[in-house]
């Protein structure tokens, strides 16, 4: 399992992460980011890709 953290004080809701890991990140009806904090290891590559493209560097894989 991996644990994901998004610093919501940094996040600008650009949604670039949603492109990379749509199973983990989504934008709700108010265009705000929502995410699943714990995910299966099979999502690791996608989440790492999301970390890379987040323009605010708001996403972190904690373990």
């Amino acid at each position: 399992m991996i644990k994901i953290e998004v610093d919501m004080t940094k996040c600008q809701h650009y949604g670039q992460c949603v492109f990379e890991a749509p199973n983990i990140f989504r934008l709700n009806n108010d265009d705000k980011l929502e995410y699943t904090a714990v995910a299966d290891d099979s999502e690791r590559a996608n989440v790492e890709a999301a970390v890379d493209v987040c323009p605010m560097q708001a996403i972190r894989i904690v373990e």
Binding site: H13, G15, P22, L27
Partner: peptide, 11 residues
């Protein structure tokens, strides 16, 4: 412009 969730859904 805005409506980012809607734009995302086109992916």
């Amino acid at each position: 412009i805005g409506m980012r969730a809607a734009v995302q859904s086109y992916r």
